[in-house]
Amino acid sequence: MHMEACAGQASSAHIVLVHGACLGGWSWFKVATRLRSAGHRVSTPDLAASGVDPRPLREVPTFRDYTKPLLDLLESLPPGEKVVLVGHSLGGVNIALACELFPEKIAAAVFVAAFMPDHRSPPSYVLEKFVEGRTLDWMDTEFKPQDPEGKLPTSMLFGPLVTRAKFFQLCSPEDLTLGRSLMRVSSMFVDDLRLQPPHTEARYGSVRKAYVVFKDDHAIVGAFQRWMVHNYPVDEVMEIDGADHMALLSTPTELARCLAHIAVKYAA
């Protein structure tokens, strides 16, 4: 499947790419370039306290606050416009919330090696299962309380060892350097997400969904990605060989082709 062919079929598709924890909209620069060259409109918002968003994490006390830039983008869409919403890693939880709040604005939700909530359990469920499964050696990741009372979410920052071994292991040295230089302190917001009710079948459950599995992911390993799909079946599953967790940088052409295929299929 050539990108040019996709462009000819769905040149007006609006694809919104949502980054994972500690990253920013910058992490999509290779994929966004390829999708735009194929004729798609692409948005890469920075979530709160991420990328170039000026707020520190302490000013983002809840997961909804963290997601607000994405929710504002969707709210600002003209009536009748629908987007293909793509979430990477923790960004899957952000796009799930967006689907719950704005299902009428989303043609399809695409989970890219991403945490995917169901509509039976609190949104924290898949994150808690991931931590319990111990499939990731967190190595030099720093988890720290932000306040003595524990009212703010625990902060998280990936260290150089875990970044190289588990997230960027197939990326170029240049991309690894870029990633390390642009990472910011973030959070998984598990305590806050545990308090939220499950998303509903009528809203979140009504949005068509696809999942893209990264087969050489050492962070959210392939087996756990497939478990999430088994836990909450989707309309389509695609897989990319030779893709580490940051396939956004290591295999951007293959990922862009997957997203273009989904845009043609669901947004046309």
Score class of each variant (00 low, 15 high):
Gly24Cys: 03
Gly24Lys: 10
Trp26Gln: 01
Ser27His: 06
Phe29Ile: 00
Arg34Val: 01
Arg36Gln: 15
Ser37Asp: 08
Ser37Ile: 00
Ala38Pro: 03
His40Asn: 14
His40Glu: 11
His40Phe: 15
His40Lys: 15
Arg41Glu: 14
Val42Glu: 11
Ser43Met: 08
Thr44Asn: 13
Pro45Gly: 05
Asp46Pro: 05
Asp46Arg: 07
Ala48Pro: 04
Ala49Glu: 10
Ser50Ala: 09
Gly51His: 03
Val52Asn: 14
Val52Ile: 13
Pro54Val: 00
Leu57Lys: 06
Glu59Leu: 05
Glu59Gly: 05
Val60His: 07
Val60Lys: 12
Pro61Asp: 08
Pro61Gly: 05
Pro61Glu: 13
Thr62Asp: 10
Phe63Glu: 10
Arg64Thr: 10
Asp65Cys: 14
Asp65Arg: 12
Tyr66Glu: 05
Leu70Cys: 08
Leu70Gln: 13
Leu70Phe: 10
Leu70Asn: 09
Leu74Asn: 08
Glu75Ala: 12
Glu75Ser: 14
Ser76Trp: 10
Ser76Asp: 15
Glu81Leu: 01
Glu81His: 07
Lys82Met: 07
Val84Leu: 15
Leu85Phe: 11
Gly87Trp: 13
Ser89Arg: 07
Leu90Cys: 12
Gly91Gln: 13
Asn94Gly: 04
Asn94Met: 03
Asn94Thr: 09
Asn94Lys: 06
Ile95Asp: 07
Ala96Ser: 15
Ala98Gly: 02
Cys99Pro: 02
Cys99Val: 08
Leu101Tyr: 03
Phe102Glu: 00
Glu104Leu: 00
Ile106Cys: 11
Ile106Ser: 04
Ala107His: 03
Ala108His: 11
Ala108Gly: 11
Val110Asn: 14
Phe111His: 05
Val112Thr: 10
Ala113Tyr: 02
Ala114Gly: 12
Met116Pro: 02
Met116Arg: 12
Pro117Gln: 04
